[in-house]
Deep mutational scan, measured.
Amino acid sequence: SEEEEEEWRRAKERGEEIIILGILWKPNDEEAERRIKEALRRV
């Protein structure tokens, strides 16, 4: 969703871990980033 995407962007800017759509994303975690982008597209 729009607000999840916004939340994720803010976490990326701050360089902090975030759990979004049930996926743990850490800074520079390209695999998780790809999965999150896929999940955001499906929503």
Rank of each mutant, 00 (worst) to 15 (best):
A39R: 09
A11S: 06
G15C: 14
E6F: 10
A32H: 01
E7L: 15
E7Y: 13
I23S: 00
E33K: 02
N28A: 07
K12G: 02
D29W: 06
E17R: 07
A32D: 01
E33W: 11
R42A: 12
L24W: 03
E17I: 10
K26I: 11
I23A: 01
I18P: 00
G22K: 00
R42W: 07
G15K: 06
R14H: 07
K26F: 05
K37N: 14
D29R: 03
N28L: 06
E30G: 08
L40D: 00
E30T: 09
E13D: 10
E6H: 06
S1M: 15
K12Q: 09
E31L: 07
P27C: 12
E2S: 15
K26A: 09
R10V: 07
G22Y: 11
E5Y: 13
W8M: 04
R9F: 09
E30Q: 10
E2M: 14
L40V: 03
R34Y: 09
E7W: 15
E3D: 14
E16G: 06
R14Q: 09
E30N: 09
R10D: 03
E17T: 13
S1R: 13
R35I: 07
W25C: 03
E31V: 09
E3Q: 14
R35T: 05
L21Q: 09
R10Q: 09
I23M: 02
W8N: 00
D29Q: 04
E5R: 05
R34E: 12
A39T: 04
P27A: 02
A32G: 03
K37M: 13
R34V: 09
R34T: 10
V43W: 14
E38P: 02
K37W: 13
I23P: 01
E6C: 14
K26D: 03
L21G: 03
R14W: 06
K37E: 14
R35S: 07
D29N: 04
A39G: 04
E5D: 10
R41N: 11
R35A: 13
P27R: 01
G22I: 13
W25K: 00
P27K: 02
K26N: 06
A39I: 08
G22C: 12
A32M: 03
P27F: 05
E3K: 14
I18V: 12
I20P: 00
E16S: 10
L24K: 12
K26T: 12
E17C: 14
R42I: 11
E3F: 14
E38I: 09
L40K: 02
E4A: 15
G22P: 00
L24T: 08
S1H: 15
E2C: 15
R41V: 08
E3G: 14
R35N: 06
K37S: 09
A39E: 05
G22V: 12
I36S: 01
R9S: 06
W8K: 01
E16D: 10
K26L: 06
I19D: 02
P27G: 03
I20D: 00
A32P: 00
I19H: 05
I18S: 03
G15E: 05
A11W: 11
G15M: 07
K26P: 03
E31D: 12
E2R: 14
G22Q: 02
E16V: 12
I19R: 08
L40G: 00
G22N: 03
K37P: 00
I20R: 02
A39C: 12
E16M: 10
L24M: 08
A11Q: 03
R42F: 08
E33F: 07
A32L: 05
L21W: 03
E7T: 11
I23R: 01
R41P: 01
I20E: 00
R42Y: 08
W25Y: 03
D29M: 02
E2G: 14
R9Y: 10
K37Q: 11
R14P: 02
R10K: 11
E2P: 13
E6S: 06
L21N: 03
E30I: 13
R41W: 07
I36K: 01
S1W: 15
N28M: 08
I36H: 00
E7N: 15
E2T: 15
I20F: 13
A32T: 06
R14E: 07
R41T: 08
R9L: 12
W8P: 02
E31G: 06
E5K: 04
V43K: 15
E13N: 07
I36M: 04
R14D: 05
K12E: 01
E7F: 15
K26H: 05
S1N: 13
E38V: 05
I19N: 06
I18N: 02
V43N: 09
W25D: 00
K37G: 05
A11T: 03
W8F: 14
R10E: 04
E17A: 12
E38Y: 01
W25A: 01
D29H: 04
E31W: 05
I36F: 05
E33G: 05
N28E: 09
R14G: 05
P27L: 02
E17S: 13
E16Y: 10
A32E: 03
L40A: 02
E3H: 14
A39V: 06
E5W: 14
A39Y: 06
W25H: 00
E31I: 08
I19Y: 13
L21Y: 05
E30D: 13
E3M: 13
E17P: 15
I19K: 05
R9K: 10
R14S: 10
N28V: 02
L24A: 05
R10W: 08
R41G: 08
E31R: 04
I20W: 03
R35E: 07
R10G: 06
L24P: 04
N28S: 06
W25S: 00
E3R: 14
A39N: 02
E4N: 10
I20Q: 01
I36A: 02
P27D: 04
E30H: 11
I18W: 07
G22D: 04
G22M: 13
R14M: 09
G15S: 06
R41H: 09
E30A: 11
G15A: 04
E4S: 13
R10L: 08
R34K: 11
A11N: 03
E6G: 05
E33V: 05
G22H: 02
A32Q: 02
L24G: 01
R14A: 11
